[in-house]
Simulated assay, not measured.
Amino acid sequence: MIRIEFYKNGDMLTGFECKGHAGFADSGEDVVCAFISSACYLAANTVTDIIKLDARSSDADGYMSLKINSSPEKAQDILIGLVLHLTELEKDYPKNIKVTITEV
């Protein structure tokens, strides 16, 4: 299962951590993994390379994170959109995706 934890400080989303494997299909053929990876990369790259916020992202096999260090208000539309996208996928694939929001 892929677990995506979003971090929230008050009304502001400040980042996310995505861990695990969907287990929907074999590696390289898992469309659920591809859906999630693509969406998370789009959000992280937009925050770091397009909006150019002070943020740190990292990734490895089965792992991705984004932590916004300053001005998280500038990334709210992107992060809220990512939450919406992933929670809709979670409805379709409840055995493969778990989305949570944690107050930090």
Rank of each mutant, 00 (worst) to 15 (best):
R3C: 11
R3V: 09
E5N: 11
F6P: 02
Y7P: 00
Y7H: 15
K8W: 09
N9R: 14
G10H: 15
M12E: 15
L13C: 10
G15L: 01
G15A: 01
G15W: 01
E17M: 07
K19R: 15
K19S: 02
G20T: 13
G20E: 11
G20F: 12
G20D: 13
A22R: 04
F24G: 13
A25S: 03
S27R: 11
S27Y: 12
G28P: 01
G28K: 00
G28Y: 00
G28E: 02
G28M: 00
V31L: 03
V32R: 12
V32P: 03
C33T: 11
A34W: 03
F35H: 06
S37K: 13
S37I: 02
S38M: 15
S38Q: 09
S38F: 04
A39N: 05
A39S: 13
A39D: 05
C40Q: 05
Y41H: 12
Y41S: 06
L42G: 14
A43H: 01
A44G: 10
A44S: 14
N45P: 08
N45H: 10
N45R: 06
N45V: 02
T46N: 15
T46F: 01
T48R: 01
T48C: 13
D49N: 11
I50W: 08
I51S: 13
I51Q: 11
A55T: 03
R56Y: 14
S57P: 07
S57I: 06
S58Y: 06
D59T: 12
D59K: 14
A60P: 00
A60W: 09
Y63H: 13
S65C: 13
I68S: 01
S70E: 08
S71L: 14
S71W: 08
S71V: 12
P72T: 04
P72G: 09
E73S: 11
E73N: 10
K74F: 10
K74P: 07
D77N: 15
I78V: 14
I78T: 07
I80Q: 07
I80L: 09
L82N: 04
V83F: 00
V83C: 07
V83T: 06
H85E: 08
H85W: 04
L86W: 03
T87S: 14
T87I: 06
T87N: 13
E88L: 06
L89I: 11
E90I: 08
E90D: 05
E90H: 08
K91G: 11
D92E: 14
P94S: 11
P94I: 09
K95P: 03
K98A: 12
T100V: 11
I101E: 15
T102S: 13
T102E: 11
V104Q: 08
V104S: 06
